[in-house]
């Protein structure tokens, strides 16, 4: 048995791992099999993470965080959690490969998952012109006309990045003004390849094998027209990834995990949550990292106050895998 297991490997999970490892808690990080490093693995230049005045590539930042956690003794497993039992003094985590790990505390930092439009053919055309990852798929839209849906920072970043490849990028936003930060907006607005379409929603995706167009509806007068695009990049935000803890942890009305005040304490003793999964508002790499710190310190405090008999189990019961 262990003292702490961390589920998630974005800035929250890895920062919690750095702090927990430095507190000699020998954390086990369940990092995911194909999404280790989290959302930043799909970004390019990160310009707002303190300490990197020239900017840093998202994947490089995450690899550095991982190395920093490992340097102090964090153990990282590239697998996915399939189920969690959080109710008792001993928390149990079952992985995709069948391994079961146990610990006296658990930090849940699973982040968020890309939101879908929820329209017909979105799923069917995913990977055939519909994409959630400009850095992965932009390359295949050289000299094409494509569309990005969304009005936030990630939509601006995707649109700007995609102009490296595409001849023309429409940005389709349902509102009449953007939510993106000033610097990201200005950069997109200054780009000659980008055309903004406000007060429009995407209602249809056309094409058999590959996307050939989309149907966009004007939110003011209800008229629909077809845009001939070969790609549709969806950047309309993300929802907290809580399916593993439904029925076990209390959620807020935003769908995030409920925590006590500014702490990371959930409704269950010994279970802490950090990062985007508790944050409906800020959702930055650096706020997630700060949140991971809080969780590690809360877990350390909790473990220190546990009865001796429980703590003795950590050494008495060998780790299973």
């Amino acid at each position: 048995m262990r003292e702490v297991i961390i589920v998630g490997s974005g800035p929250a999970g890895y920062t919690a791992a750095i702090y927990a490892a430095r507190a000699n808690l020998k954390p086990l990080v369940i990092a995911s099999s194909v999404e280790a490093g989290g959302e930043l693995m799909k970004t390019t230049e990160v310009e707002n993470y303190p300490g990197f005045p020239e900017g840093i590539q998202g994947p490089e930042l995450m690899i550095k965080m991982q190395e920093q956690a490992e340097r102090f003794g964090a153990e990282i497993v590239l697998d996915d959690v399939v189920s969690l039992d959080l109710s008792g003094d001993v928390k149990s985590v079952t992985l995709g490969n069948g391994d079961v790990h146990e610990a006296l505390s658990l930090i849940f930092a699973t982040g968020s998952a890309y939101r879908k439009l929820g329209i017909a053919d979105e799923e069917r055309m995913s990977g055939h012109g519909v994409s959630w990852c400009a850095t992965c798929d932009g390359f295949f839209f050289r000299k094409k006309t494509i569309a990005v849906v969304g009005g936030g920072d990630s939509a601006m970043e995707e649109a700007t990045f995609l102009t490296k490849f595409a001849d023309k990028v429409y940005v389709i936003h349902r509102g009449d003004s953007l939510r993106a930060s000033k610097v990201m907006q200005e950069r997109a607005e200054a780009n000659e390849k980008i055309e903004f379409l406000f007060n429009k929603t995407v209602e249809h995706i056309y094409g058999d094998e590959l996307v050939t167009g989309i149907g966009i509806v004007d939110t003011k007068d209800g008229t629909e027209r077809t845009l001939d695009v070969s790609g549709l990049f969806i950047a309309i935000g993300a929802d907290p990834r809580t399916h593993l803890v439904h029925g076990q942890l209390d959620l807020t009305t935003f769908g995030t995990i409920a925590v006590d005040g500014r702490s990371s304490r959930t409704n269950l003793p010994g279970v802490f949550a950090a990062g985007d999964v508790i944050d409906p508002t800020y959702r930055q790499a650096v706020t997630a990292a700060g949140s991971g710190t809080v969780a590690a310190l809360d877990a350390e405090h909790y473990l220190a106050a546990l009865p001796k008999e429980l703590k003795e189990q950590v050494d008495a019961v060998p780790v299973s895998a």
């Binding site: 194909v34 999404e35 693995m41 799909k42 994947p59 590239l78 990852c133 850095t135 992965c136 390359f139």
Partner: peptide
């Protein structure tokens, strides 16, 4: 696959 594709690197060992 491609070098610059993070998910490609993640799935390769699988």
């Amino acid at each position: 696959w491609a070098e610059w594709c993070g998910p490609c690197r993640a799935v390769s060992p699988i």
